[in-house]
Amino acid sequence: MKKIVALIMGILLAVVFFGGCQTDTTSGESDTQNESADSEGTKYLIGFAKGTDTPWMAILEAALVAKADELGVELILTSAGSHADKQISDVESLLTQNVDAIIMNPIDREACGVIVDTIKEKGIPLVEVNTFTTNENYDVYVGSPEEQAGNLQAQWLINNIGATGNLCILYGEMGSSGQIGREAGLLEGLGITVDSEDTDKWIVLAAQTANWVRADAKRIAEDWLMAYGDQIDAICAQDDEMAMGALQAVQEKNLEDKIKVLGIDGMQESVISVGEGGQAMTALQDAVAQGETAIEVAVKLLNGEEVDKVVDIPFVEINETNYEDFLE
């Protein structure tokens, strides 16, 4: 019995300790330009409820943390590890810590809508970044329009391959705003639906979800290459991770000249691949700009300034002509 108590105490201590470490309190030193400090000289405390732990999100987070440091804002970071329920409790714990504002990267359009109302009941500003909820009671959404990214892929297909062709789509996590928006943008750009069989336009041979995972994407692409072979003209992956997986499958069959692989996100590995003539294109979702803008918007709201409901950080197409500008 005593042992169990000791164990529980130990765990609690560890949680408090590591939790304390994670609570990345960045201070703005004695910066005189510190606009965010209110009249009493105390700093704003802002909570960032991160949804997923992808490499891309790590860049966004780093930019957000750096900007907060610059603005002299104190930050509390939480990470939900792709679980909507974890994110809900993350936000609840942020609220009990009396944050002045919350920046959230919602995991799920619908499920995370609950949190929006909880936050707004507290009367504090809520900025959604990168992804947004269907519950529109948030103050500002900072992000890149997902449809536009899909649209960029569609434009590339039409401009570089032609008005007709056969296409496979690798979806991200089904139901995520990225998956829904990018698919809509792609199909709209091509003027087709997933099931349409109009030979004057592009035709979708197959569409599967690889859940943003490279290994799954590779496996599925291998199966497609088996089933459809060089019938396929292009594989549109909804992010670069999956694009890399699909590209490897294509390259192992020496079909990279025949089958083009398109991605989204502007991941460095993909930018290099574009330069080497591997991946056909990618679209950069500017993680740094999104992260920096999100914190800036939050501070503006706290200072009582007006901000548009949607702040677009546009996607940028990266292809063989301009890839060099995006190499780090």
């Binding site: 732990d53 992808t54 995972v213 490279r214 290994a215 590779k218 890399m244 997986g245 490897q248 590995e269």
Partner: peptide, 15 residues
């Protein structure tokens, strides 16, 4: 095998 197969080592792999 996995790292070799996908040419990447990632912390979110193997979920």
């Amino acid at each position: 095998l996995l790292v070799s197969r996908v040419n990447a080592a990632q912390p979110q792999a193997g979920v």
